[in-house]
Design a protein around this nucleic acid. Structure first.
Lengths: 234, 234
DNA sequence: ACAAAAGTGTTGTGGCTACACCCATGT
DNA sequence: ACATGGGTGTAGCCACAACACTTTTGT
């Protein structure tokens, strides 16, 4: 397939700076949150922004984004997907940069806040996002719409919840994503009808005196659901 | 917002070649088709490929893609959306190129084949796609999945059909996208229940002796449907 | 004993699927 | 008169929405 040894086959074509910016969602059993950090380089130093990086010549965009998240959090096998590109010619006041936004879902307690503080990062509730640089607010809005849409057709809790979780927790997650209250009975009925959950005999008593049974995701059924898709409207 | 006059704020960062590749779908009242063309530049000259171009320093990706389609077809207000990026380091045998695929839906008869022949282009039925260069086959497959998914939640015929069209034509379009036969009565019932169509009193007799009534899209209702989304499973 | 959250069933309704025949017209 | 595609109606079924009370247990 390598037709030319000369790796400069396309002369006189403009090259452009490419960055990845990561919208990192986390969930702490009560709120859906977003990881933001104080920008450390000019221009716009000191403002809140998404975390990002320029893309190296020898990394795919996906790997570049994974590296960004991994450097920040120490986490390695995270869920990460491309959102879309942002390419307005004047979007970056410094110089022309095309950014490819990626969004990621992580368990908020899976990594220590040390590394986060080192980066001057903070979790924000998604309805309390501060002003962000350039078009990062747009990226965040687009990402929220994206996960809301995604949640409707595919199980999405997997990456945001701990290995074992209760149905009420899962419901709170969906309520955060949809930003509306769901009916307990109907939620439980529907989510159980998919057979993607396995009940354990442990209980989580942190939320109530009675305690709620802990469930796990059933990975096999789960992955077949992801490829087939379904309709989860409540 | 312009913090620096110096437009080289980010020194020592690698710049990369960016291309857009366009998956152009057309519909000729019977078949869903894809516009492909014979590549005119090395490497891989003479193979079938999508149409694309390197992105200029002063164009957004979306505008670059629009320009590609416009140069080829002469059409200007076409539907065009970003699909996703393709960024494997070695994907292009010539040199590293990151490609941002865009897909477009056009009325197949809205432009003259002259300009198409000038470009050595041809329409292919989507189930008869020849071998394509690099990862273009992947892009096409991804684009087909995308419109199939999209068709399920948003009205999609608008850009592919002429201003006036019959319900049987619209049905054929959906059958092409879903690649399965749909029930006439249920299709008609459901599509009419959305109230996005306006019946005219003209008939199209090209398809039968009796003739089928022509409909138009009702743009207002249509756009509100696009933003809200719906579920169109048949 | 009581507060606080977990858990459980039923009923009505609306939308979907599946299915077969008449209509209008050109030849 | 007949062939061709256009157009219409219904009945059974299933999934969803709406809704209130009992259970468990820590304090």
């Amino acid at each position: 397939m390598q037709l030319l040894n000369n790796k400069k086959a396309y002369k006189n074509q403009a090259k452009i700076l490419i960055a990845v910016d990561c919208i990192i969602f986390g969930f702490d059993s009560e709120e859906l949150k977003l990881l933001l950090f104080k920008r450390k380089v000019a221009p716009l130093k000191g403002s809140w922004s998404l975390i990002g990086a320029f893309v190296d010549e020898n990394l795919s965009l996906n790997n570049a984004a994974k590296q960004v998240v991994s450097n920040l959090t120490g986490l390695n096998n995270i869920f990460l997907e491309e959102l879309q590109t942002y390419s307005d010619v004047d979007r970056d006041p410094g110089e022309r940069v095309i950014s490819v936004a990626h969004y990621s879902l992580i368990r908020i307690n899976d990594f220590d806040l040390d590394s986060v503080e080192k980066y001057d990062a903070r979790w924000f509730k998604i309805d309390e996002i501060p002003e962000l640089i350039i078009d990062h607010k747009q990226m965040v809005d687009d990402a929220i719409l994206k996960i809301r849409k995604k949640a409707r057709y595919q199980p999405i809790g997997f990456e945001l919840l701990p290995e074992k979780f209760t149905i009420p927790h899962l419901q709170i997650l969906y309520e955060c994503i949809y930003q509306k209250k769901l009916d307990d009975r109907n939620f439980r009925k529907k989510i159980l009808s998919f057979n993607i959950l396995t009940k354990t005999d442990e209980k989580d008593k942190s939320g109530s005196k009675k305690g709620a049974f802990l469930y796990k995701f059933n990975k096999e059924k789960f992955t077949s659901f992801i490829s087939k898709g379904y309709n989860f409207e409540l």
